[in-house]
Simulated scan of single mutants.
Amino acid sequence: MWGVLMSVVAIVLMQSGGLANLQAMTLLVALPFAMLMLLMCFSLWKGLSADKKYFDTKVNPTSIFWTGDKWKERLEQMMNQTQEKDILRFLKHTVLPAMRELRQELIGKYDLSVQINTLFDQDEPAVELVIQKDLMRDFMYGVKSIGREVSEQLINDDNLPHIQHSMTYEPYTYFFDGRVGYDVQYMDQDELIADMLKHYERYLSLLDDVGQELMAHEQTELAE
Protein backbone atom coordinates (compact mmCIF):
# COMPACT_ATOMS: atom_id res chain seq x y z
CA MET A 1 0.00 0.00 0.00
CA TRP A 2 2.80 2.37 0.89
CA GLY A 3 4.71 1.54 -2.30
CA VAL A 4 1.62 2.02 -4.51
CA LEU A 5 0.81 5.34 -2.84
CA MET A 6 4.36 6.68 -3.31
CA SER A 7 4.36 5.54 -6.96
CA VAL A 8 1.05 7.33 -7.67
CA VAL A 9 2.28 10.54 -6.03
CA ALA A 10 5.55 10.43 -8.00
CA ILE A 11 3.72 9.86 -11.30
CA VAL A 12 1.29 12.72 -10.65
CA LEU A 13 4.11 15.11 -9.73
CA MET A 14 6.17 14.14 -12.79
CA GLN A 15 3.21 14.75 -15.11
CA SER A 16 2.19 18.04 -13.52
CA GLY A 17 5.51 19.77 -12.98
CA GLY A 18 8.35 17.49 -13.84
CA LEU A 19 11.40 16.53 -11.81
CA ALA A 20 11.60 19.89 -9.97
CA ASN A 21 8.20 19.40 -8.33
CA LEU A 22 9.07 15.82 -7.39
CA GLN A 23 12.30 16.95 -5.74
CA ALA A 24 10.55 19.77 -3.86
CA MET A 25 7.85 17.42 -2.62
CA THR A 26 10.46 14.88 -1.50
CA LEU A 27 12.21 17.53 0.59
CA LEU A 28 8.94 18.67 2.17
CA VAL A 29 7.92 15.15 3.12
CA ALA A 30 11.39 14.11 4.35
CA LEU A 31 11.40 16.21 7.55
CA PRO A 32 8.13 14.99 9.10
CA PHE A 33 8.98 11.45 8.02
CA ALA A 34 12.36 11.79 9.75
CA MET A 35 10.55 12.82 12.95
CA LEU A 36 8.33 9.77 12.57
CA MET A 37 11.41 7.57 12.22
CA LEU A 38 12.89 9.05 15.40
CA LEU A 39 9.65 8.34 17.24
CA MET A 40 9.73 4.76 15.95
CA CYS A 41 13.34 4.37 17.12
CA PHE A 42 12.41 5.63 20.60
CA SER A 43 9.44 3.26 20.76
CA LEU A 44 11.65 0.36 19.68
CA TRP A 45 14.21 1.22 22.37
CA LYS A 46 11.49 1.29 25.04
CA GLY A 47 10.13 -2.02 23.85
CA LEU A 48 13.56 -3.68 23.89
CA SER A 49 14.28 -2.26 27.37
CA ALA A 50 11.01 -3.64 28.72
CA ASP A 51 11.72 -6.98 27.07
CA LYS A 52 15.21 -7.16 28.61
CA LYS A 53 13.88 -6.23 32.05
CA TYR A 54 11.22 -8.93 31.78
CA PHE A 55 13.69 -11.71 30.97
CA ASP A 56 16.37 -10.45 33.39
CA THR A 57 13.99 -10.45 36.37
CA LYS A 58 14.96 -13.39 38.56
CA VAL A 59 13.28 -15.19 41.43
CA ASN A 60 13.75 -13.50 44.81
CA PRO A 61 17.08 -14.79 46.25
CA THR A 62 15.44 -15.46 49.61
CA SER A 63 13.16 -18.06 48.02
CA ILE A 64 16.05 -20.56 48.07
CA PHE A 65 15.21 -21.09 51.75
CA TRP A 66 11.55 -21.87 51.10
CA THR A 67 10.04 -25.25 51.80
CA GLY A 68 6.46 -26.45 51.60
CA ASP A 69 6.09 -26.23 55.39
CA LYS A 70 5.19 -22.53 55.51
CA TRP A 71 3.58 -22.00 52.13
CA LYS A 72 0.40 -20.45 53.58
CA GLU A 73 2.44 -17.94 55.58
CA ARG A 74 4.51 -17.10 52.50
CA LEU A 75 1.35 -16.60 50.44
CA GLU A 76 -0.16 -14.32 53.09
CA GLN A 77 3.00 -12.20 53.07
CA MET A 78 2.94 -11.96 49.28
CA MET A 79 -0.71 -10.88 49.28
CA ASN A 80 -0.16 -8.00 51.73
CA GLN A 81 1.35 -4.74 50.53
CA THR A 82 3.98 -3.87 53.11
CA GLN A 83 4.24 -0.33 54.43
CA GLU A 84 7.02 1.39 56.34
CA LYS A 85 5.56 0.43 59.74
CA ASP A 86 5.56 -3.23 58.65
CA ILE A 87 9.24 -3.08 57.69
CA LEU A 88 10.11 -1.29 60.92
CA ARG A 89 8.35 -4.06 62.85
CA PHE A 90 10.26 -6.65 60.80
CA LEU A 91 13.57 -4.94 61.61
CA LYS A 92 12.79 -4.82 65.33
CA HIS A 93 11.20 -8.24 65.83
CA THR A 94 13.01 -10.42 63.26
CA VAL A 95 16.27 -8.87 62.01
CA LEU A 96 17.46 -7.39 65.32
CA PRO A 97 16.88 -10.59 67.38
CA ALA A 98 18.68 -12.61 64.68
CA MET A 99 21.68 -10.27 64.81
CA ARG A 100 21.71 -10.36 68.61
CA GLU A 101 21.68 -14.14 68.64
CA LEU A 102 24.56 -14.31 66.17
CA ARG A 103 26.46 -11.61 68.04
CA GLN A 104 26.15 -13.52 71.31
CA GLU A 105 27.58 -16.66 69.68
CA LEU A 106 30.44 -14.80 67.99
CA ILE A 107 31.44 -13.02 71.19
CA GLY A 108 30.82 -15.79 73.73
CA LYS A 109 32.39 -18.68 71.81
CA TYR A 110 34.83 -17.04 69.39
CA ASP A 111 35.76 -13.87 71.28
CA LEU A 112 35.19 -11.59 68.28
CA SER A 113 34.51 -7.86 68.46
CA VAL A 114 30.93 -7.45 67.23
CA GLN A 115 28.53 -4.54 67.44
CA ILE A 116 24.98 -3.88 66.28
CA ASN A 117 23.94 -0.47 64.97
CA THR A 118 20.25 0.46 65.14
CA LEU A 119 19.44 3.35 62.78
CA PHE A 120 15.71 3.76 63.25
CA ASP A 121 15.74 7.59 63.17
CA GLN A 122 16.96 7.84 59.56
CA ASP A 123 14.84 8.36 56.44
CA GLU A 124 15.58 4.72 55.65
CA PRO A 125 15.50 2.84 58.99
CA ALA A 126 18.21 0.19 59.18
CA VAL A 127 19.96 -2.37 61.38
CA GLU A 128 23.62 -3.34 60.95
CA LEU A 129 25.79 -6.19 62.23
CA VAL A 130 29.46 -5.18 62.24
CA ILE A 131 32.35 -7.60 62.93
CA GLN A 132 35.39 -5.45 63.59
CA LYS A 133 38.94 -6.18 62.47
CA ASP A 134 42.12 -4.38 63.53
CA LEU A 135 43.97 -4.23 60.23
CA MET A 136 41.25 -5.16 57.76
CA ARG A 137 38.06 -3.58 56.61
CA ASP A 138 35.21 -4.43 58.97
CA PHE A 139 32.57 -6.92 57.90
CA MET A 140 29.11 -5.37 57.79
CA TYR A 141 25.71 -6.85 56.99
CA GLY A 142 22.84 -4.39 57.05
CA VAL A 143 19.12 -4.41 56.35
CA LYS A 144 17.27 -1.17 55.59
CA SER A 145 13.79 -0.10 54.54
CA ILE A 146 13.57 0.81 50.85
CA GLY A 147 10.48 2.48 49.38
CA ARG A 148 9.41 2.24 45.75
CA GLU A 149 6.46 3.64 43.81
CA VAL A 150 3.63 1.45 42.57
CA SER A 151 2.08 2.18 39.17
CA GLU A 152 -1.52 3.41 39.06
CA GLN A 153 -2.36 0.59 36.67
CA LEU A 154 -1.71 -1.94 39.44
CA ILE A 155 -3.60 0.11 42.05
CA ASN A 156 -6.68 0.38 39.78
CA ASP A 157 -6.65 -3.30 38.85
CA ASP A 158 -9.70 -4.96 40.47
CA ASN A 159 -7.95 -8.33 40.28
CA LEU A 160 -5.22 -7.08 42.65
CA PRO A 161 -7.22 -5.96 45.70
CA HIS A 162 -4.20 -6.16 48.02
CA ILE A 163 -2.46 -3.29 46.17
CA GLN A 164 -4.00 -0.10 47.55
CA HIS A 165 -1.09 2.26 48.25
CA SER A 166 1.05 4.27 45.86
CA MET A 167 4.21 3.29 47.80
CA THR A 168 5.41 -0.07 49.01
CA TYR A 169 8.39 -0.81 51.26
CA GLU A 170 10.83 -3.71 51.35
CA PRO A 171 13.71 -4.67 53.69
CA TYR A 172 16.82 -4.69 51.51
CA THR A 173 20.27 -5.91 52.47
CA TYR A 174 23.45 -3.88 51.99
CA PHE A 175 27.06 -4.87 52.59
CA PHE A 176 30.49 -3.55 53.59
CA ASP A 177 31.76 -3.64 49.98
CA GLY A 178 28.79 -1.89 48.35
CA ARG A 179 27.33 -4.92 46.54
CA VAL A 180 23.71 -4.77 45.38
CA GLY A 181 21.34 -6.11 48.03
CA TYR A 182 18.05 -7.98 47.87
CA ASP A 183 14.68 -8.26 49.60
CA VAL A 184 14.68 -10.41 52.78
CA GLN A 185 11.12 -9.87 54.00
CA TYR A 186 10.28 -13.58 53.66
CA MET A 187 13.11 -14.75 55.92
CA ASP A 188 12.71 -15.82 59.53
CA GLN A 189 15.40 -15.42 62.21
CA ASP A 190 17.25 -18.66 61.46
CA GLU A 191 17.24 -17.97 57.72
CA LEU A 192 18.61 -14.47 58.32
CA ILE A 193 21.42 -15.90 60.47
CA ALA A 194 22.23 -18.38 57.68
CA ASP A 195 22.30 -15.52 55.17
CA MET A 196 24.63 -13.45 57.35
CA LEU A 197 26.95 -16.42 57.79
CA LYS A 198 26.98 -16.98 54.03
CA HIS A 199 28.29 -13.46 53.46
CA TYR A 200 30.72 -13.72 56.39
CA GLU A 201 32.13 -16.92 54.88
CA ARG A 202 32.71 -14.98 51.64
CA TYR A 203 34.44 -12.25 53.63
CA LEU A 204 36.77 -14.78 55.28
CA SER A 205 37.57 -16.30 51.90
CA LEU A 206 38.59 -12.86 50.64
CA LEU A 207 40.88 -12.37 53.61
CA ASP A 208 42.63 -15.62 52.76
CA ASP A 209 43.15 -14.67 49.11
CA VAL A 210 43.80 -11.53 47.03
CA GLY A 211 41.08 -9.72 48.93
CA GLN A 212 43.37 -9.45 51.94
CA GLU A 213 45.71 -7.06 50.15
CA LEU A 214 42.78 -5.12 48.67
CA MET A 215 40.93 -4.67 51.97
CA ALA A 216 44.10 -3.94 53.91
CA HIS A 217 45.03 -1.30 51.32
CA GLU A 218 41.56 0.29 51.60
CA GLN A 219 41.83 0.30 55.38
CA THR A 220 45.26 1.97 55.20
CA GLU A 221 43.92 4.70 52.91
CA LEU A 222 41.02 5.36 55.28
CA ALA A 223 43.41 5.64 58.22
CA GLU A 224 45.59 8.12 56.35
Rank of each mutant, 00 (worst) to 15 (best):
R103W: 03
K133E: 15
L214D: 05
K72F: 15
H162W: 14
L192Y: 01
H162C: 06
D209T: 05
H199V: 10
D190S: 13
W66R: 04
E84T: 01
Q15T: 10
R202E: 14
P32W: 08
L5H: 13
E149Y: 04
E152G: 12
Y54R: 09
E201D: 14
G17F: 05
S49K: 06
E101D: 14
I107Q: 15
S7M: 12
L160F: 08
Q132W: 05
S113E: 13
S16C: 06
S151D: 15
L5Y: 15
Y186R: 01
L75T: 07
V143G: 00
L204N: 11
V95Q: 00
V59T: 13
A194L: 10
R179G: 01
L44P: 01
Q104K: 14
V95S: 00
Y186E: 08
A223H: 09
G68D: 15
A10M: 11
Y174S: 00
T62G: 15
F55W: 13
L38K: 11
V127Q: 00
A30P: 06
R74M: 06
L204E: 13
G3H: 11
L135F: 11
G181C: 02
V150P: 05
D51A: 08
S166I: 11
D195N: 08
A30Y: 15
H162G: 03
M6F: 14
F176W: 11
Q83F: 00
V8D: 15
L75P: 02
P61M: 02
E128D: 08
Q23P: 05
G142C: 00
N117P: 05
M1F: 14
V130W: 01
E73S: 12
E152M: 05
D138N: 12
E128P: 03
E84Y: 01
S7W: 09
L160D: 07
T67C: 06
N80W: 06
E149C: 05
G142I: 00
D158T: 11
L44K: 09
S145Y: 00
A126M: 04
Q23R: 09
Y186S: 07
I163N: 03
Y110K: 08
V127T: 02
A50V: 05
A30F: 15
L5T: 12
G18N: 04
R148D: 13
L119C: 05
D157G: 06
G178F: 01
D111A: 10
E73V: 12
Q189S: 14
F139V: 02
K198R: 09
Q153I: 11
Q15E: 13
R148V: 09
Q104E: 15
R179P: 01
E73A: 14
R148T: 13
I87Y: 01
I193M: 10
M1T: 13
R137P: 08
I163L: 07
G17W: 06
Q83T: 01
T67D: 11
G142V: 00
G3M: 09
M40R: 12
F120G: 03
D138I: 04
T57I: 07
W71M: 12
M187W: 05
D134H: 07
